[in-house]
């Protein structure tokens, strides 16, 4: 009974929905990145690593220059660099995309860990360095309940939802989008019509770098204001699951991200529920929740969604 009471309390509190939006934001960014990459035919499991680099870079530049927004900008540039490595290995050199993705994750973990001491003087985590403050949307923030959910949020949260619209428009309404979809489905056909298959694939992968890096930056300069080693904690992979569940469509990926975000928010709120008194030692059990939800949902829904036909297959001319 206490459980039902606690869950009911959480569900009726606008705080839960606000946290859901916040928790979804990294998933939305990264899963949109996944969509961009895979829709052109390149599997990118490096999302996790790119996010980590994004989180780290944005904190580093905030630390040196005091501007979190500059940090975000630099995170985008570093994300582009990581994505370029992945694109270069998998498009130009026909590398195994899953393995190069794994390599980049490891590289990101190595580089961020390695640079902690030279830059911040200690391993593990940084001090609170600075973050992007929430902004209040006049008008909306005054509406009861809804105002508490969407009236005052971190600007990056609004940007994430803007990115969904932007991605949807780019993929389904523009010439470039049509070409992206053709390249991920049948690169040979696109090639014979003079579409630059490699160029478009580079674009898709680079976009995934920008977006995943933004997702990572949100974790550090958006939410916490500090960097912790391995702070992405598997979110890149959950984002991949959101992309699959969302059927490689930006809107679908957003909805799936909201679901996984809700799981994280529920976990968070249950742990701090005044009714349940969760002890420190049982918290790990609650932390399993988002991963179990992902596992169940992915296995339940796969097969009903359809990946791009050439996803993960290097395009070799001749």
């Amino acid at each position: 009974m206490r459980w039902i009471q606690a869950i009911f309390d959480i569900l009726t509190n606008p705080q839960f929905y606000k946290i859901t939006l916040t928790a979804s934001t990294p998933f939305i960014f990264a899963s949109l990145g996944g969509v961009f990459s895979e829709i052109t035919g390149v599997v990118n499991i490096a999302l996790e690593g790119i996010m980590l680099m994004g989180a780290f870079t944005s904190i580093v530049f905030t630390f040196y220059f005091g501007s979190p927004w500059l940090g975000v900008l630099m995170a985008i540039i570093v994300g582009l660099g990581m994505a370029w490595l992945h694109a270069w290995a998998s498009i130009k050199w026909y590398g195994n995309q899953i393995v190069t993705g794994t390599a980049l994750i490891l590289l990101a973990q190595g580089v961020t860990g390695f640079l902690m001491e030279p830059i911040f003087g200690r391993p593990g985590q940084t001090d609170l360095i600075g973050k992007i403050e929430e902004i209040r949307v006049p008008g909306i923030s005054e509406i009861p309940f809804i105002g508490k959910v969407i009236g005052e949020l971190n600007p990056l949260v609004y940007i994430a939802f803007g990115a969904v619209v932007f991605s949807w428009f780019l993929i389904y309404k523009t010439v470039l989008g049509l070409r992206m979809r053709s390249v991920g489905e049948n690169p040979e056909a696109a090639d014979t019509l003079g579409v630059n298959v490699y160029g478009i694939r580079y674009f898709g992968v680079l976009m995934s770098g920008v977006l995943a890096s933004l997702g990572g930056a949100f974790l550090s300069v958006g939410e916490l204001g500090q960097f912790k080693e391995l702070m992405t904690g598997g979110r890149g992979f959950i984002a991949l699951a959101a992309m699959i569940l969302g059927n490689w469509n930006p809107v679908g990926a957003m909805l799936a991200s909201l679901l996984f975000g809700a799981a994280e928010a529920m976990n968070n709120q249950l742990q701090s529920s005044p009714i349940l008194h969760v002890s420190a030692s049982t918290k790990p059990l609650f932390n399993m929740l988002p991963f179990i939800v992902t596992l169940v949902v992915v296995s339940g829904f796969i097969g009903r969604t359809r990946p791009p036909a050439a996803d993960g297959i290097p395009y070799i001319k001749e």
Binding site: L104, L106, L107, A108, Q109, G110, V111, T112, G113, F114
Partner: peptide, 8 residues
């Protein structure tokens, strides 16, 4: 961590 970089 340099080892992780090498491995990557």
């Amino acid at each position: 961590h340099v080892v992780m970089i090498v491995q990557g």
